[in-house]
C-alpha cells in the first residue's frame, strides 16, 4: 500500500486505457478509455448488455480485462495477486443483489473485512461498524441476520459493509434495481449523503436520473461495449449529442 501514498493528488484515481474484453466471440468492452479524478462522482448508464457492469467489475478485477491497462490509485491490475489484493483493499463494491453473508449477523458482515483483512481489533472494528450503521440509519438492526431485513435495509447494510474497509473508491452496480419502488428512495438518500459528506470517488451504474442530476460530476453513456458519450449532467440531459443517447434518454424518461 506504500505505492498509494506517493501518488500526487492530481494523478487520476482510476485510469482505463484501451481496455478490451471478450466473452468468447462476444466483444463486451471495446477500447474503453476513462480517467477518473480523485473524489469525482460518475454515473454510468446505457441499455442492458452494453458493458456497464462489466466495466466497473474490471476495476476490482471481479472480471479480467484481456487487453489494455487498468490503473487504480497508481497500482496497475495484472496477474499479480498482491496487486489485485492491494486494489481490492481500497475499492468497496455494492451489488445489485446485495450479496450480504446470510450466515453472519449484520454486525459480523460489517466487521469481517476489518478483522481479517485490516487486522483491526474486534472492539474497534465493532465501534466503526456501529458508526457506519448509524450513518445508514439502521443501528438497531446490528444483531439481526440479513434474512430478517427488508431489501432496502439490506442494501444499506451492504453500503455500510463496503464503507467499513475505508475505501478510496466506491463502485455501485445497479444498487437500486432489485428493490421494491418504495425502498429505492431510502437507498438513494444514503448514497447522496455519502457523496455530500465524504470525498470518496464514486462510480455508479444506475438508471436513477434524479440521482445522476443531483450527485454526478459526469454522466457516461455506454452502448455495445463502448463509451458513446460523456458530459456534465446538465448538458447530458438537455443536449445529448449522439443519436443512441437521445433514443435511450427518450425511452427511460418517457414515463
Amino acid at each position: 500500500m506504500a505505492t498509494a501514498v506517493q501518488q500526487p493528488s492530481d494523478a487520476p484515481m482510476i485510469l482505463l486505457e484501451k481496455v478490451n474484453k471478450w466473452y468468447g466471440d462476444f466483444h463486451v468492452l471495446t477500447d474503453i478509455d476513462l480517467s477518473v479524478k480523485r473524489g469525482e462522482r460518475i454515473v454510468i448508464c446505457g441499455p442492458s448488455g452494453s458493458g456497464k457492469s462489466t466495466m466497473i467489475r474490471c476495476i476490482n478485477r471481479l472480471e479480467e480485462h484481456q487487453a489494455g491497462r487498468i490503473v487504480v490509485d497508481g497500482v496497475e491490475l495484472t496477474n499479480d495477486v498482491r496487486k489485485v489484493d492491494a486494489v481490492r483493499r481500497d475499492v468497496g463494491m455494492v451489488f445489485q443483489h446485495f450479496n450480504l453473508f446470510p450466515h453472519l449477523t449484520v454486525l459480523q458482515n460489517l466487521t469481517l473485512a476489518p478483522i481479517w483483512v485490516r487486522k483491526t481489533p474486534k472492539a474497534e472494528a465493532e465501534a466503526t461498524a456501529m458508526k457506519y450503521l448509524e450513518r445508514v440509519r439502521i443501528p438497531e438492526q446490528a444483531n439481526k441476520f440479513p434474512g430478517q431485513l427488508s431489501g432496502g435495509q439490506q442494501q444499506r447494510v451492504a453500503i455500510a459493509r463496503a464503507l467499513c474497509i475505508n475505501p478510496k473508491v466506491m463502485l455501485f452496480d445497479e444498487p437500486t434495481s432489485a428493490l421494491d419502488p418504495e425502498m429505492v428512495a431510502e437507498v438513494l438518500d444514503v448514497m447522496i449523503k455519502l457523496a455530500e459528506e465524504s470525498n470518496v470517488t464514486m462510480l455508479c451504474v444506475t438508471h436513477e436520473m434524479g440521482f445522476a442530476r443531483s450527485v454526478a460530476d459526469r454522466v457516461i453513456f455506454m452502448d455495445r461495449g463502448q463509451i458513446v458519450e460523456q458530459n456534465t449532467p446538465e448538458e447530458f440531459f438537455s443536449h445529448p449529442q449522439n443519436e443512441r443517447t437521445k433514443l435511450f434518454l427518450s425511452q427511460i424518461l418517457a414515463h
Binding site: N60, L62, D85, R88, R89, V91, G92, M93, F95, H97, N99, L100, F101, L112, A113, W116, V117, R161, A162, I165
Partner: peptide
C-alpha cells in the same frame, strides 16, 4: 455473488472458502 462480495472486500480465496 457470495464469493464476489467476499473477494471485493479484500479477503483472499482461502479466507473466502473458509469463512
Amino acid at each position: 455473488g457470495q464469493t464476489e462480495a467476499s473477494l471485493s472486500l479484500g479477503l483472499t480465496k482461502g479466507q473466502t472458502l473458509r469463512l
